[in-house]
Design a protein around this nucleic acid. Structure first.
Lengths: 224, 224
DNA sequence: TATAAATGATAGTAATACTATCATTTATTT
DNA sequence: AAATAAATGATAGTATTACTATCATTTATA
């Protein structure tokens, strides 16, 4: 039996649910490939249609515009990541070990998850690093927020924030620290690979150093 | 006598130096106004031309495209901010007091500096918060980096990194911590105003809480 | 006053971001 | 198995964006 994990998505993000058809799944699959390869600014529905072998009009039947498609992909990733975090820390009793595990999950280059055949999580992780913040850094964040576009992100931060509080119930900034860990994990990864002068890392050991840096940052401040 | 501060800019960022003419200064002034008001994605050279009362073609005589104009504005701000940091901390002897002062400068909503008549630093600061990372989150970062587009940012991080090392010469991640402070100051500010669930702050006390959060984060980790 | 440099006015092109229409294929219901 | 509905394909069209080019006019400098 073939198992498939499905992430429940906000219905206002799409016109037609892409999980329910072959074309829809191809839109997800090829948009991940194209956005990762060419960057979000250069990515267009026309290029996506050509890559899939369909027409622009057909893409518009699934997504209103490329921004909503980006938000969809990113939400999907946050949903998937929260599942990973809950699943991979459920037997960890020690709160600090749990938080350490979470930091590792947030900062590690992900492997493709075979449970989700049309989504390559490793590519999606790279999209998160380079394009993630573009999903909310717009003039229409607040309307998007009202439509719950960022719930998966907020839920994830809440989960991480709760684990932080488990470590130290006195800590004053669990939400800010949670969002900081997530964003800094991505930023330092981007800097490491593209603007290394902004970091203290060398290209060889890669993510391990980011994890060390984050552990140092997080555990010194919550133990303080 | 009227004093004017000039920030020396990378010449590859522009076609014609905007500081050298009235039209050029208007391009800077109105692009700051428009980008802040409408957001970078919606901003176009045509709209900018209309706002100034000139033509699209004339704008292109100063900047190749809107991305380079954005990088120009952001570089200008980093240059100006580094000047502020050096100027405002030059008499501070205690390293920790100096770093605290730097964090405050990085996280505070800036006042318009009358020394630079055509640049409203307060608006530019808001552009930095919402659009800053778009200057480097592109597929062409590395070429841009080779052309020294990000030198003012790197210089600022280096300056901040050196102050961090003054506090604790043993600290392993001065550059990463410097870039983290800068980016987190902006991110938490954006979240506070747009996605408050991602922070622990209330709208009333504003920036003070971000400064407290950053101080806690930074000083616990470098004292560790 | 002559000359060069900067700007304005206008036109044009290819690409982007859509919307609309109708024919055809594929799936579902009776 | 036929009838009906839903999804997709093919094609066309529009407004806007992101430019480039040309030539006339204004403004600055030699």
């Amino acid at each position: 039996m073939k198992l498939e994990v499905q992430i429940k998505m906000n219905e206002t993000l799409y016109v037609r649910d892409p999980e329910q058809s072959e074309l829809g799944k191809n839109i997800i699959k090829y948009s991940i490939l194209l956005i990762q390869k060419k960057g979000f600014e250069v990515f267009t529905f026309k290029k996506l249609a050509e890559a899939i072998g369909t027409t622009e009009a057909s893409i518009y039947r699934y997504f209103e515009n490329k921004h909503k498609l980006l938000v969809y992909l990113i939400s999907w990733y946050w949903g998937w990541l929260e599942f990973q975090i809950i699943y991979q820390t459920k037997n960890v009793q020690d709160s600090k070990a749990k938080l350490k595990q979470v930091i590792t999950l947030l900062a590690t280059t992900v492997q493709d998850d075979i449970m989700t055949s049309h989504v390559d999580e490793s590519l999606l992780n790279q999209i998160l690093i380079s394009e993630g913040c573009k999903s909310y850094l717009t003039k229409h964040v607040q309307e998007d927020n009202k439509q719950e576009f960022f719930s998966p992100y907020k839920d994830l931060c809440k989960t991480v924030g709760e684990i932080i509080l488990e470590c130290n119930i006195q800590y004053k900034y669990p939400q800010s620290l949670a969002s900081t860990i997530i964003e800094v994990a991505h930023l330092q990864n981007f800097f490491l690979h593209n603007l290394p002068a902004l970091t203290d890392f060398d290209q060889t050991k890669k993510e391990d150093q980011i994890i060390e840096f984050l552990n140092n940052l997080v555990f010194s401040s919550i133990n303080n």
